[in-house]
Design a protein around this nucleic acid. Structure first.
Lengths: 144, 144
DNA sequence: AAAATTTATTTGTACATACAAATAAAAAGT
DNA sequence: ACTTTTTATTTGTATGTACAAATAAATTTT
């Protein structure tokens, strides 16, 4: 049913291959984080806030490599779910995890682990490490 | 200003790195195809139809590794721009390029070339080839 | 001190993508 | 021949993301 990326006429184009891979990985990640009813992005934002309570949107944008506006949107949703609260003073905003978020932390860690195990078992232990390193290196080169 | 992927706390996670890369590549591709006022996806779909007039949505979905519903949406937009026409008979649909699309073909090829040149100059000739091959290989492994 | 610039965040809007359900036609089974 | 199942496509709806503009506060310049 589902076609291999290598069978496509566009298998040698970076746009095509990187987005095809990202979609596959995202789909896999979605399944893992479904059990906590969060998208991977929301989950990673939440984990960042749990590790550094009070973190500001700007820093979150850098950490997660997303635009500030996207961060605002992600926070809004987490706020609706009562997982974070925002306090604004002056032009700065701080984002804090709620007790509910803290309760969720073990489960979040479990999702990370599950996801990691899943792709490692498919790609291979050594190769996944190498691959992720390569991805990071190339992404860095593309940083303007 | 813009942070490197390797500086993120999540630089060792496949979800994070693959989506960060895809976003950067997509941004770069967007710039290239702006001159023909198309997103990369629309452009690739159009090129596929130009190379094989009458191609059906199902095959396009496979080639481009997108879902059928996404293909329908992309076609709708290209139809609005008078770049393709759809003819439906029975349960099958054929997508054909218009003369306007054919006129655009050289420019499209130019975009592909420009994009390719751009990322090759950043990543390096040999390394981009190797990298795209790796991406394809891993994407294939992730195919369910 | 007042004005101009820079910085941090949010809002309005648009877009690519997907899932689930709806159509509708073709193929297979009886 | 009629019913069931499968296949192809589209529609309704939702989501993550980004850009450009709007706020608004802090900093710098004059």
């Amino acid at each position: 049913m589902s076609m291999k990326t290598s069978d496509s006429q566009y298998a040698e184009c970076l746009y095509f291959t990187s987005s095809a891979l990202a979609r596959k990985v995202e789909k896999m990640a979605n399944e893992c984080w479904k059990q906590v009813d969060l998208s991977p992005s929301h989950a990673y934002l939440l984990m960042a806030v749990l590790e550094e309570p009070g973190m500001q949107p700007g820093n979150l944008a850098e950490q997660l490599q997303l635009t500030p506006s996207t961060i605002t949107r992600l926070i809004e949703k987490l706020e609706e779910k009562k997982l974070v609260i925002r306090t604004t003073e002056g032009k700065l905003t701080n984002v804090y995890p709620t007790p509910k978020a803290k309760d969720l932390q073990p489960e979040l860690r479990n999702c990370v682990h599950e996801f990691h195990t899943k792709y490692t078992s498919i790609i291979g232990k050594e190769e996944s490490i190498r691959f992720v390193k390569t991805l990071t290196k190339i992404a860095d080169k593309l940083t303007d």
